[in-house]
Nucleic acid binder design. Structure first.
Lengths: 204, 204
DNA sequence: AGACTTATATTCCGAGCGGAATAGAAATCG
DNA sequence: CGATTTCTATTCCGCTCGGAATATAAGTCT
């Protein structure tokens, strides 16, 4: 009962996500948000809570939307396939023609105290991906897909580091082809069904 | 003639650099700066110009101070040595015990219009490193240090991408040992005196 | 119809922003 | 000394911030 909402909550959130993606948490004001979302401040407040909560929801939507390639990548049958899919997905998403360059999750590397909520959310977001990837690589070791002496955490950290680096480069304007080229280089350390080495120095 | 300055310009700039490094351009107010620098606003204005100019000078100082490992790295005798030194330097600088985690140059990946000056400076800063590295690798090809068919631009992009990724991870709290481990992995693509492959797919 | 509920629109809040202006203090000159 | 110059300190500017309060419109209930 009561007066029905006049705007589409889902679309408003989508627009908020877009704005945060483009300009970051600290770089966006409530006025920017309400303007982009097509609603007024009380409506925003009632539907999403304060700015921090709205950002949290936008980040969730980002994870399930533009960044869903990550979840799909983890379902690839081989560890190498997972790594390939993650890097390729990152390249595509950070250079999406209609969207902002870069990654919503790779932001707020430094912030004021006011930006700390978003900063912390993003650190946790990035770490959670590293963890999911590590668990997936551990499974690959257990299944014999990766060598028994492979180090899943190390491998996951490496892939995530390159992925984050790609996000930085994308934000700087590098194009899709150049970034995919970088991703390919990073994958050259891997054999088709696993890794070439994980801990030992090259033999020759 | 006239009244002499009561503060040390160099030390004030050092402190400003530190604050920008820690909280980013948009995350720092003039009040934060004057407080950290131990001077008042008119003094800041007279000595450094406005906030944007101060940031530019802080970035220059960063380049010649904490990030001088980059310039020194380019003087290494071999391309592999250059890559090693850059990655190792990035790891050390982004995890320096007394300093902020992360890299002053890897910030402002997304910003408001007000933050655009700093954003653009940083994009240019990162690109300039990629260029210097590319030129260094080109020299290595010319000297026979790298194979004739190596692609200097590709190699430079790869190294810089990993370097930026390391900065992101450092900002997220990863420690020095873990990051050095990642750097080592990135270097495993290289033979002692060059690269294993640059353009071709792995043979097996 | 009319009470009730929940939306929307407008207005306002104290605080802080980047920046500028003004006033006073400390040095060097003739 | 006293004029000049350049620093420092204080104050103020218009503006915007995130957030809250108030008032009104638009629905659903009995």
């Amino acid at each position: 009962m009561g007066r029905p909402r006049e705007f589409d909550v889902d679309e408003a959130l989508e627009r908020a996500m877009r704005v945060f993606w483009e300009r970051g948490y600290e770089g966006v004001s409530l006025t920017d948000l309400t303007k982009a979302m097509g609603i007024t401040k009380p409506s925003l407040y009632a539907a999403f809570g304060d700015k921090k909560e709205l950002f949290r929801k936008a980040l969730e939507r980002y994870t399930e939307g533009p960044a869903d390639y990550g979840t799909r990548a983890l379902e690839e049958p081989t560890a190498r396939g997972v790594a390939e899919a993650i890097l390729r997905g990152a390249v595509r998403t950070t250079t999406r023609p209609g969207g902002p360059a870069g990654c919503l999750g790779v932001q707020a590397l430094a912030s004021s105290e006011a930006g700390r909520p978003a900063h912390d959310m993003l650190v946790e977001w990035r770490n959670s991906w590293a963890l999911r990837l590590e668990e997936r690589f551990q499974r690959a070791v257990d299944e014999g897909d990766l060598p028994r002496d492979a180090d899943p955490r190390r491998l996951a950290r490496y892939v995530m580091t390159v992925t984050f680096g790609i996000a930085v480069q994308a934000a700087g304007g590098l194009g899709r082809d150049e970034l995919q080229d970088i991703a390919d280089m990073a994958l050259e350390c891997w054999l088709p069904n696993g890794v070439r080495r994980t801990h030992t120095e090259p033999s020759g």
